[in-house]
Write a protein that binds this DNA or RNA. Structure first.
Length: 378
DNA sequence: AGGTTCGGAAACTAAAAGGT
DNA sequence: CCTTTTAGTTTCCGAACCTC
C-alpha cells in the first residue's frame, strides 16, 4: 500500500479541491452493457467506490469467550440505498466505534485455502470420495486397515477428436487498459489505484468515479494504520477520512437512462431506466459468461438425497463418469452453466443508482467538500 | 460419535483452437 | 510452435444417513 495517492497524473500537491479544473472529458471509451457500470472514463479520474457502512457490531461469534473479537463478514451494515442520484463513498469515513481505519475494510477471514488434490488417489479413497495422499498405502487406508488394497487407480484416457467451437478470446488486458476484476455481477470493474483499498471480494456494489481532484490520502504522507492493536481505542474518526462526506452525488447523475452529460451517448443503450434502475435484461455483452458455474454452492445445497439404502451396486456410476460416451448427454448441459442464471434474477439487488430526476438537486443537498464535477457539465 | 455414502463443486489437465 | 481456451475427468468436501 503505497502512501502515494493516485492523484491525477499531473499535479504535484494540491488539496483535493484546489486546482481541480474540470478536465476535458475525453472520448468515452465503451458503452457499458445497459444496467452495468460505466467503465472508467479515460483520464486522471481516481476511482471512487460506492461503499456501505461497515458494521461495527458484527463480531466473530467464534472468538474466544469475551475476547476482543473482530468484525467478520458480513461486515456491512444494512444500509438503505443512497438517495437518488447519490452514491456511498469508498472508502467510507469511519463510523464511530469502528475499530478499523476509515476506508480500510476489516481483515477478511483468511481466504479459504485452495484445495489441493493429489495426482492420483488410491482406489479405496477414490471410491469413498475421500482425501488421499501420495503415500502408498495412504494414510486413510492405513487407518482403516486397507493398506494392502491401497493402490493407484487407472486413469481413463481422455476422449479425443472432440470438435470445439471457435474460442472466445478473453479480454487480454495488457497495457494501458486498467486491470479488471469481476464484480459480483460478473461485470468488469477497475482495480483501484494504489491509494485506495480494493473493495472486498465479492463486493456487490457498483462503483463510480469521484469528482476529479479528490484524493483520499492520509496527510503528511503518513501511512494508514492497518488496524488497531487489540484494546486500543478506535482511532475514529480518522482525521483525514472524516473530512469528506460518506455520500456523494452520483457522478453520472441520472445514469442509467441518460448518459452523463458531456459524454457521448451510449450507443445501443435503452434510454428509459426501470424504476429499479435495472434494465430488464442484459443485452449483448451479457455474454460475458460467468465462466464456471461456481456461482452456486447454495443452489445445490438444499439437495435431496434419495438414498436407496440397498444400493447393491457397489459403486453406482457417478455422473457421466462411467457412462459410455453414447449415453452421455453430450456437453449440452454443461454449457448451461451460465444459463441457469436465469433463476438468479431474484437475488437482492445492491443499491442501484438509478436515474432520478432529482439527481441534480439531491446532489446539491449533501454537505461537505464540494465534489468537483466529474463531467464537464453536471 | 464415528463411519459410510454420494451429489456436486473444485481442481486438474489434455485436446483443440487460435496466434505468431 | 506456443499460448489460450475449453471441457473431460478426477478429487474430495460436506451433508445426509447409518450403525453401534
Amino acid at each position: 500500500m503505497s502512501s502515494e495517492p493516485a492523484k491525477s497524473a499531473s499535479s504535484s500537491s494540491s488539496t483535493p479541491q484546489e486546482g481541480a479544473q474540470p478536465q476535458p472529458v475525453p472520448h468515452y471509451p465503451q458503452p457499458p452493457p445497459y444496467g452495468g457500470h460505466y467503465p472508467p472514463p479515460p483520464g486522471p479520474y481516481p476511482p471512487f467506490y460506492a461503499y456501505p457502512v461497515p458494521d461495527p457490531s458484527h463480531h466473530d461469534p467464534n472468538a474466544p469467550n469475551g475476547a476482543p473479537s473482530q468484525p467478520v463478514a458480513p461486515f456491512f451494515m444494512a444500509v438503505p440505498p443512497p438517495p437518488p442520484g447519490m452514491v456511498y463513498a469508498y472508502p467510507m469515513p469511519a463510523a464511530p466505534g469502528y475499530p478499523f481505519p476509515a476506508g480500510i475494510p476489516p481483515p477478511q477471514p483468511a481466504p479459504k485455502p485452495k484445495r489441493k488434490q493429489v495426482k492420483m488417489a488410491c482406489t479405496n479413497c477414490a471410491s469413498a470420495c475421500k482425501r488421499c495422499d501420495e503415500a502408498r498405502p495412504c494414510e486413510r487406508c492405513i487407518k482403516y486397515g486397507l493398506a494392502e488394497t491401497c493402490v493407484d487407480g487407472v486413469r481413463k484416457e481422455r476422449k479425443k477428436g472432440i470438435k470445439r467451437g471457435p474460442y472466445k478470446r478473453k479480454n487480454r488486458n495488457g497495457s494501458g487498459e486498467p486491470s479488471d476484476y469481476p464484480s459480483a455481477e460478473g461485470e468488469q470493474q477497475v482495480a483501484p489505484p494504489p491509494a485506495y483499498p480494493m473493495p472486498p471480494e465479492g463486493y456487490p456494489f457498483p462503483f463510480v468515479y469521484p469528482p476529479y481532484g479528490y484524493v483520499p490520502a492520509p496527510p503528511d504522507g503518513q501511512p494508514h494504520p492497518e488496524g488497531t492493536p487489540s484494546g486500543a481505542p478506535p482511532p475514529m474518526p480518522h482525521p483525514v477520512y472524516s473530512t469528506y462526506p460518506a455520500i456523494y452525488p452520483h457522478p453520472y447523475g441520472a445514469y442509467p437512462g441518460a448518459p452523463p452529460m458531456g459524454y457521448p451517448p451510449m450507443p445501443g443503450a435503452p434510454v428509459a431506466a426501470s424504476p429499479n434502475g435495472n434494465a430488464a435484461g442484459k443485452p449483448e455483452s451479457s455474454v460475458a459468461s460467468p465462466t464456471n458455474g461456481s456461482a452456486s454452492t447454495d443452489p445445490g445445497k438444499g439437495k435431496k438425497r434419495s438414498r436407496g439404502k440397498g444400493d447393491d451396486s457397489s459403486r453406482p456410476a457417478k455422473k457421466s463418469r462411467d457412462v459410455p460416451p453414447e449415453e452421455q448427454q453430450s456437453n449440452d448441459d454443461k454449457g448451461t452453466v451460465g444459463g441457469d442464471m436465469a433463476g438468479k434474477e431474484q437475488q437482492p439487488q445492491p443499491p442501484t443508482f438509478a436515474a432520478h430526476p432529482e439527481a441534480g438537486p439531491a446532489a446539491a443537498a449533501f454537505n461537505g467538500p464540494e465534489p468537483r464535477p466529474l463531467m464537464a457539465t453536471m
